[in-house]
Computed example of a mutant assay.
Amino acid sequence: MQTRCGLEPRALAALTVVLLVAACLAGGYFWTGRPEPVRAPEIVRAVPVAAAPDTRQGPGPEQGPGPEQGPGAVAGVPKVVVDVGGKVRRPGVLTLPAGSRVADALRAAGGAKPGADLTGINRARVLMDGEQVLVGLPGMAVGGSASGGGTDGPRTPLSLNVATVEQLDTLPGVGPVLAQHIVDHRAERGGFRSVAELREVNGIGERRFADLEPLVRP
């Protein structure tokens, strides 16, 4: 090559170095550009979501009773408190759900005792808060007349909510017609909450109410 090109040894050596560098650069370029195996990406597994508690079921065995369980009634549900006395097995003050009837109160009091007279009790009547239900007790003291006669002894206050037309007829100034008005008023209004409501009955004025007030109770 030196003979053909007429190159001096120094120039030939420089050319050789340039060629070597160029060859190294070309080799490096092709080496970096070679195809490489690519590893497949790992499958990402979804984290299992914890199951939400089933709110339709009650608390589990390890939990205590919820706010709607336990011995008391459901919070927020209206109640009525009534006093059941007379000839029942367990007389006393009872708390019952609003809308309960006299039959429910008797059942909660253990039922009527054998031989108790339930003729004057309307067991289908809806109870009112604060009322008293007496079983098997007469509307008047011994010596009173069921047909409208007088009595020499003191009267037992007659319950406006349980008295029959015949019993109301025994009150002073109350005849069969007015007694029926009282019973009809009681059925329309769901009973008497207080003696003062007797003024609302057709045929009872202030004077007659003043006479009846000490002789009756709700």
Score class of each variant (00 low, 15 high):
residue 95 T to Y: 06
residue 23 A to R: 11
residue 132 Q to E: 11
residue 106 L to G: 04
residue 17 V to N: 00
residue 61 P to L: 15
residue 127 L to M: 02
residue 143 G to I: 05
residue 13 A to Q: 14
residue 9 P to H: 15
residue 208 R to M: 10
residue 54 D to E: 14
residue 84 V to S: 06
residue 7 L to C: 13
residue 5 C to T: 15
residue 107 R to W: 02
residue 7 L to A: 15
residue 43 I to R: 15
residue 129 D to A: 03
residue 201 V to W: 08
residue 215 L to F: 07
residue 141 A to H: 05
residue 132 Q to S: 15
residue 162 V to A: 10
residue 143 G to Y: 00
residue 94 L to W: 01
residue 16 T to D: 10
residue 218 P to L: 10
residue 93 V to T: 11
residue 184 D to M: 05
residue 155 R to W: 07
residue 146 A to Y: 08
residue 3 T to G: 15
residue 162 V to R: 01
residue 120 G to D: 00
residue 19 L to S: 11
residue 200 E to A: 15
residue 49 V to G: 12
residue 148 G to E: 06
residue 169 D to W: 09
residue 82 V to T: 03
residue 152 D to F: 00
residue 83 D to P: 05
residue 207 R to N: 13
residue 91 P to V: 04
residue 85 G to V: 01
residue 25 L to V: 15
residue 5 C to N: 13
residue 139 G to M: 05
residue 160 L to G: 04
residue 84 V to K: 01
residue 101 R to T: 06
residue 101 R to M: 03
residue 131 E to V: 05
residue 72 G to I: 00
residue 180 Q to M: 04
residue 50 A to R: 15
residue 213 E to G: 01
residue 27 G to S: 10
residue 74 V to C: 10
residue 165 V to L: 00
residue 63 Q to K: 02
residue 177 V to T: 13
residue 177 V to H: 09
residue 196 A to K: 14
residue 112 A to K: 03
residue 189 R to H: 14
residue 77 V to D: 09
residue 102 V to G: 03
residue 187 A to I: 08
residue 203 G to K: 04
residue 95 T to N: 02
residue 86 G to A: 07
residue 47 V to W: 12
residue 115 G to L: 05
residue 76 G to A: 06
residue 5 C to E: 12
residue 38 V to P: 05
residue 53 P to R: 15
residue 207 R to A: 15
residue 81 V to Q: 13
residue 139 G to Q: 06
residue 46 A to K: 11
residue 23 A to G: 13
residue 74 V to L: 14
residue 169 D to E: 11
residue 19 L to P: 02
residue 174 V to C: 08
residue 33 G to K: 14
residue 43 I to A: 14
residue 8 E to Y: 11
residue 76 G to E: 07
residue 32 T to M: 07
residue 15 L to H: 08
residue 24 C to G: 13
residue 113 K to M: 13
residue 107 R to C: 05
residue 163 A to G: 05
residue 124 A to R: 06
residue 116 A to C: 08
residue 186 R to I: 03
residue 17 V to K: 00
residue 155 R to P: 07
residue 69 Q to I: 03
residue 84 V to L: 01
residue 13 A to D: 10
residue 52 A to Q: 14
residue 99 G to M: 02
residue 190 G to L: 04
residue 47 V to C: 06
residue 55 T to P: 03
residue 24 C to E: 11
residue 182 I to T: 08
residue 159 S to F: 04
residue 46 A to Q: 12
residue 217 R to E: 04
residue 179 A to F: 07
residue 32 T to Y: 04
residue 173 G to I: 05
